[in-house]
């Protein structure tokens, strides 16, 4: 069955121009999707949005401690969303092996969930004991004025 489909597609590829064939393959693969995979795509795109927020925050915030807020939170959350999305997408059949892969991916998520606050805390402690004080209100006003 699959081979027949593929042969047909190859023949069409030879016959016609490229773009309609591309559209046809895309729509046919969209029809093959189940709802779990669509859910996985949504999770992955959401994770990308959160990671964009973290990156922009790292670029934009005025001092180290506020950058820590962006990095420590956006990082763990976007990793969680993207990995669980990928885990759902790559589950082809529901056999024991694919379930094991899914559980391993969830293990990475759990690990990052545990370690991200810890590394944030350690870094912050190191910076605080190295006499980097957080911004007070005067400095903050100056930094905001620059942005304007």
């Amino acid at each position: 069955m699959l081979k027949k489909k593929r042969k047909e597609q190859e023949r069409k590829m030879k016959d016609s121009s490229f773009i309609p064939v591309l559209a046809e393959t895309m729509t046919s693969s969209l029809n093959d999707l189940n709802i779990i995979q669509i859910f996985g795509f949504l999770l992955g795109v959401l994770g990308l949005i959160f990671f964009l927020g973290a990156a922009v925050g790292m670029l934009r915030f005025p001092d180290f401690y506020t950058r820590m807020h962006a990095a420590g939170k956006g990082d763990s959350m976007s990793t969680m969303l993207m990995l669980s999305g990928l885990g759902l997408v790559t589950m082809e059949d529901y056999s024991l092996g694919s379930w094991l892969v899914f559980v391993k991916i969830m293990g990475i998520v759990l690990f990052i969930y545990l370690t991200s606050p810890t590394s944030t805390h350690v870094l912050m402690k190191a910076a605080f004991e190295d006499n980097h004080m957080p911004l007070d209100e005067k400095d903050l006003k100056k930094a905001k004025g620059k942005k304007k």
Binding site: V56, G57, F61, D63, A70, G74, M77, M80, L140
Partner: peptide, 26 residues
Amino acid sequence: EVVLANIHVLKLAMTNKGYMEMAPRV
């Protein structure tokens, strides 16, 4: 709570109004 935290950080980083409201302290 983690989801709420991320929406909050997204608001602070992306919108100008959230950036102006920011007042970090210990």
